[in-house]
Design a binder for these strands. Structure first.
Length: 208
DNA sequence: CGTTCGATGCACT
DNA sequence: GTGCATCGAACGT
């Protein structure tokens, strides 16, 4: 296996769908005083521009969505449903608001740290496959909160690395959990990964 | 196995 | 006041 190489800022500057697909197989790493936790990205969704009604940029620039309008390679973290943090990688040049939502990881390092974080609040720690399954769960497992909002994914405690692994097969489907913008097939995942969110039996694997 | 529904905080109208 | 880029417990089949 090649040495881990942190993705450079230029990686994120391209078209969002291209970056989204390229992120599958890469490794999200969060280094904290409590330890390092990481996982292989196996599911993503693209949110592209003010014309995408599901994108946070749809209402135009606001205080919350400002990172989307900034330079690529920045983490955009926000609180969803009052209790879950969701993490995105900002894409495309500054002024073009778009990002890739990270929806699921296959845990690689810091499994015990992930279990402890997921078990907070008197819950029982889930199985390894479920530790980072779902966008709210992976941020919980990696300890990602608003404190990581706006961090540089190419130069900070929160990184994405290329470890030389390329998914054998990926699939594009409609995005999950939306009431608008349902027409776009902007969700991509690695075929066969047990960490992909959604009902396992409903992850129908059609050809690309 | 499946579906429904409450929790919970804040950005935005 | 309304509506979320969610999760998991509770309940029905």
């Amino acid at each position: 296996m090649p040495a881990p190489r942190t993705l450079r800022q230029s990686f994120y500057a391209g078209p969002t769908l291209t970056v989204a697909e390229a992120l599958l197989g890469k490794v999200l790493v969060h280094r904290t005083p409590a330890g390092t936790a990481s996982g292989r990205i196996v599911e993503v969704e693209a949110y592209i521009g003010e014309d995408d009604p599901a994108c946070h940029a749809a209402p135009g620039p606001t205080a919350r969505n400002e990172p989307l309008y900034g330079p690529p390679g920045i983490a955009y973290v926000y609180l969803n449903y009052g209790m879950h943090y969701l993490v995105n990688a900002v894409t495309e040049p500054a002024g073009s608001p778009a990002a890739v939502l990270l929806r699921a990881l296959e845990p690689l390092e810091g499994l015990d740290l992930m279990r402890r974080r997921r078990a907070l609040g008197g819950r029982q720690a889930p199985s390894d496959d479920d530790l980072c399954r779902g966008p709210g769960n992976l941020t919980r497992a990696l300890g990602i909160t608003l404190a990581q909002n706006r961090m540089r994914l190419y130069d900070s405690e929160l990184l994405i690395q290329d470890r030389g692994e390329v998914p054998k097969a990926i699939v594009w489907t409609t995005r999950i959990g939306l009431t608008v913008g349902v027409d776009h097939q902007w969700r991509a995942y690695v075929v066969g990964s047990t960490a992909v969110s959604g009902r396992r039996t409903k992850n129908v694997e059609r050809g690309t």
